[in-house]
Amino acid sequence: MSATQPSDDAFEKGHIKIPSMTPGWLLDAWKYMPRSSSACAPSRGLPVIIMAHGICGNKLMSLAPYAETFACMGYAVVVFDYRRWGASGGTPRHVVYISEQLEDYRTVIKYCRLQPEFDPHKVILWGTSLSGGHVVTLASERELNPTAVISQCPYLGTGPSTEISWTFIKTILRGIQDVLRQAVGLHPTYIPAVAYPGQVGMLTKPGCVQGVQRIVADQRDFPNEVSASSLFELPFYNPTASAPRITCPALVVAAEHDNLCPLQAALELKALSPLVEVVVVPCHHFELYPGTSMHEKSVDAMKAFLLERVALA
């Protein structure tokens, strides 16, 4: 079966709400369960893969093909939106707090371990871009004890190079304005999540606008805005720093010509931990996602890794 053409008959998709650490704010999630138990009928539940999107993304942005592929293999999958994003609760909207997103992953992990349909000893974390960095960070938390992690084109603390320009200065000033506004309880100052080179925005490298457009089936699913102060989260986030403490097998699928999350960062991660495996795909950042020529190559690496590291009973 092709990684891009899973059979709907092979899995059931449900919709669940998971209480977050903020009272009253629920995490919106999809739950995929294989229909057939012939390939895997464990008494302790199924291995479960927990997934979330990258910066400014939500689960409607082409995460379903991954989940469907894994469910067809016999794994359970839970795909969730962070607080403030997608269909999850939380205000103000579209603000990136890395500590909050890591906490949301932990919340979903704990939730899944309490559900009888999942094996609490076989929890796999999956992330892409910024969330690819999140799962690397979480792989080093011994108390979480994930079984394995899969990280696609991850942000590992090294971002794209920036040039001092008038656009850069305007972007920073918008970020400072947002910090001041939110500090006194005002509505955030927003900038585009993706924009063309030379414009104010979060992601402005060549190919970003076109890449995001490819993974959004309906433009209404992607508001294309983020609080300007979210820019200041990334320089202080370094998932690679936790590499020596990684406790489980980790697959990194890296794009050779990535202009957002450089390949060199993935190679440095591998050098710091014997548990890290890197597969390099000859493409750009957004060419690993569904609908591109290199997507199946990325997914094939993930499938092989899963079957080797988290075998189905």
Score class of each variant (00 low, 15 high):
residue 284 H to V: 10
residue 174 R to T: 00
residue 217 A to N: 13
residue 189 T to S: 14
residue 188 P to R: 00
residue 82 Y to W: 13
residue 73 M to Q: 15
residue 168 F to M: 14
residue 32 Y to A: 04
residue 258 D to G: 05
residue 282 P to A: 09
residue 87 A to V: 04
residue 102 L to F: 10
residue 279 V to D: 08
residue 133 G to I: 06
residue 159 G to M: 06
residue 70 F to A: 06
residue 30 W to A: 03
residue 99 S to K: 15
residue 218 D to E: 12
residue 237 Y to C: 13
residue 296 E to Y: 08
residue 250 A to H: 00
residue 74 G to L: 12
residue 191 I to V: 14
residue 158 T to R: 12
residue 1 M to C: 11
residue 232 F to A: 08
residue 107 T to G: 03
residue 301 A to G: 05
residue 94 H to F: 15
residue 188 P to Y: 03
residue 122 K to E: 13
residue 102 L to H: 02
residue 150 I to R: 04
residue 118 F to C: 03
residue 100 E to H: 10
residue 137 T to I: 05
residue 252 V to D: 07
residue 216 V to S: 05
residue 15 H to S: 14
residue 252 V to W: 00
residue 246 I to H: 02
residue 194 V to P: 05
residue 201 G to Q: 06
residue 10 A to M: 05
residue 256 E to M: 14
residue 173 L to M: 15
residue 203 L to F: 09
residue 295 H to L: 10
residue 234 L to F: 05
residue 25 W to P: 00
residue 165 S to G: 06
residue 305 F to R: 02
residue 146 P to T: 03
residue 229 S to D: 12
residue 261 C to Y: 03
residue 79 V to N: 02
residue 27 L to W: 03
residue 97 Y to W: 08
residue 236 F to Q: 09
residue 108 V to I: 06
residue 221 D to N: 12
residue 246 I to A: 02
residue 140 S to K: 01
residue 265 A to H: 02
residue 26 L to G: 04
residue 240 T to N: 11
residue 23 P to W: 00
residue 154 P to T: 09
residue 89 G to R: 04
residue 112 C to V: 09
residue 291 G to W: 13
residue 5 Q to F: 06
residue 146 P to R: 08
residue 86 G to T: 07
residue 81 D to T: 02
residue 177 Q to G: 12
residue 79 V to Q: 01
residue 255 A to N: 03
residue 43 S to K: 15
residue 58 N to I: 06
residue 43 S to P: 11
residue 306 L to S: 00
residue 84 R to C: 11
residue 176 I to C: 05
residue 276 V to N: 02
